[in-house]
Design a protein around this nucleic acid. Structure first.
Length: 141
DNA sequence: CGTATGACCATGC
DNA sequence: GGCATGGCCATAC
């Protein structure tokens, strides 16, 4: 009997995949809503990642939602204090203004192997220094 | 099916 | 860097 599972892949085509990616963020590192959206791809948006995090419910105990922060390194949740404490306990450091030091603790994204294997998009490489990156791109003027 | 909302982000000032 | 706007797309009513 082939009880084909008629899984509702359509309904939350993003939520499921978002959760899957967030699970990959290692302890002691953080990622941003936008980065997760890029990895999921297929038109996924940063706000959808936020929605998916809010939709975790009981699963919040399994999925490291605390490692997802906003582009500025700030915490967007209502329980910002608790989230910051969790991250501190993992070794994540903050600056004087209470923002995560993204340059040091930002997750580089999944390995190309894992990404290809599960149908995700790896994150583009980021230079440690923005200036050097700009310099490497010759402005032909 | 239109409207409002959201754990966002890029842009312009 | 901070503040205000517009845009983005899925959900809830």
């Amino acid at each position: 009997m082939s009880t084909t599972v008629t899984i509702t892949m359509q309904e939350r085509r993003y939520f499921e995949r978002i959760h899957q990616v967030v699970e990959q963020v290692p302890r002691g590192q953080v990622s941003t809503y936008g980065d997760i959206a890029l990895i999921v791809g297929g038109g996924c948006d940063a706000r959808i990642v936020g929605l998916a995090m809010g939709d975790l419910g009981p699963r919040s105990a399994q999925i490291p939602w605390q490692r997802i922060i906003n582009r500025s390194g700030g915490i967007s949740t209502l329980e910002a204090v608790g989230q910051r404490e969790r991250l501190k306990a993992e070794g994540v450091e903050f600056d004087e203004k209470g923002r995560v030091l993204l340059e040091r603790f930002r997750w580089a994204g999944p390995t190309p192997e894992w990404a290809a294997q599960h149908g995700f998009t790896p994150l583009p490489a980021r230079s440690a220094s923005k200036d050097e990156e700009d310099k490497s791109q010759l402005r032909l003027f």
